[in-house]
Amino acid sequence: MSTDLKEALFAYTLRLGDTSLVLGHRLSEWCGHAPELEEDIALTNVALDLVGHARMLLTYAGELEGKGRDEDRLAYRRDVFDYRNHLLVEQPNRDFGHTIVRQFLHDAWAVELYERLCASKDDTLAGIAAKAVKEVRYHVRHSGDWLVRLGDGTEISHAKVADALGRLWPYTGEMFERDEAEQALVAAGIVPDPAGLKAAWSARVEAVLEEATLDRPADGWMQKGGRRGEHSEHLGYLLAEMQFLPRAYPDATW
């Protein structure tokens, strides 16, 4: 693999790993606070899977970079501006409905992405995708079921998820962005074309929204920047909590 392509793959893998890690951390914040015990367990189970994906992806990113950074170094020793996750996943937890909407919008994208990444010409990425896709297919069923139940539920639950959908929709555009480096990866058959994901994602989302009696928001102004390290203030607070221990006690081991 050429140096340029390797650098592009590092950037790509880092974005995907960071997105999984940050969303996994957000879900873990529900531990002990979900509206019912079963959901407490479900959200933290999904969090575990996502952190598992992040571990595989960040380990691989570290190998591609070749500067000796492992998964922990990448997760715990980078500040906000070095994180490359989507802005969608760093949005703070509001109510349960908001968490479900955020999760569903992400899950629907993750399923479409990993299904295509299984065919990557990069064996490691294809292996990670084949492992992850089985789990995210389960996640999207869970978040989709809840979205239908809340959307097609009571007046209050409908209003809450409709509100969350409006708030979060402007963060969905970032999932389909593509820069020059990614263009090279697409051309090399290593990653799927993000633009091609959009139609499949839209179809998946619209089918569930219809069942949930929710209107699909119009694609207006889309927030962007997370993929380049330009984040909302929320990510700093998340990292402060997530990175406290390794920053207070560098190189500590169990």
């Binding site: 079963e38 959901e39 367990i41 479900a42 189970n45 999904v46 575990l48 899977d49 389960y138 069923r141 869970h142 079921d145």
Partner: peptide
Amino acid sequence: QISRFGSTACKAL
């Protein structure tokens, strides 16, 4: 089915 997620990652309740 009570929940898609059970006491461990591999089980449902």
